[in-house]
Amino acid sequence: MKNGHWEKNLFQLIRRTSVDLPSDVEAVIRRALKKERKGSHAWWVLNAILENVALSRKNDTPICQDTGSLTFYFGVPVGFDTNAIVAHTRAAVAKATRQGYLRQNTIDSVSGASYDTNIGSASPVFIFQQQARKKVDVRLIMKGGGSENMGSQYSLPDVGIHADRDLEGVRRCILDAVWNAQGNGCAPGILGVCIGGDRATGYKHSKEQFLRRLADKSRVKALARLEEKIMKDVFKLGIGPMGLGGKTTLLGIKIDSLSRVPASYFVTISYMCWAFRRRGVLLGPEGGVHRWLY
């Protein structure tokens, strides 16, 4: 695979993800603002968030200084050279770091040394899936460390929170996680939840829920109902934006399930901050842009 447009357009994907909040997220924040009392801390925070979103778009600067961990989800045609696109993506990440679209955000876990380019053994993260179509589907999620630290995994039954192996138990886990997070994940957040799987696939799948649009409802009726119920529950908690009180504690929740073994029943919750940086692009066979996603 020749370089062609690959590196250039992957760089553009990173830039857009870092500076431009997706419109569905911004719209939900705008709606939330209307529910908060004028002059309250919640109102002040949401206004500042919207102002910040507009400012970063205008100034071409990152929405948040924690440009986070970068996970690239690639949907590629049969026979596609994944090694080459990994190299192009790494070059694009290094360039975005040099230009200040990404913070120097990658650390050697033993020596403590900071990597100038953001290229490390787990940075960026690549997830490949083969697809029948000819185009290359690239999606990028940038997730800050503050929100990542608020992720949690429950093994049911959990006596401490009275959670059994049923959807009511799942609900208890989710509400417990939201309470524990308070404002620390940069509320109002978005939750990705996976019921089942093993410990590793549970976290992976919970994060994949962030690829869904905020308006998307689960196709499994019981889960769609649970998503709706949690949103109503959380409305009453009063944690609010940045944990300073108010109605808006979550902007959305996406729940899905994986099969499991009889002995394990995991509920895995990933927390995404309000600065929900998610973008995507469909690239043609030479790496040219076919269409921007989201």
């Binding site: 500042a48 910040n52 600067t61 948040c64 913070r103 120097q104 900071s114 600065a275």
Partner: peptide, 30 residues
């Protein structure tokens, strides 16, 4: 408490960078 994530807005209020310390030891972010 400052507003988490409002990174551009808060940077607008930075008028001057006098210096940076412990840069070699900790990296730019730390």
């Amino acid at each position: 408490q400052a507003i988490g994530g409002a990174a551009g807005l808060l940077a607008e209020s930075i008028k001057e960078v006098h210096g940076v310390h412990l840069l070699a030891e900790f990296g730019a972010a730390e």
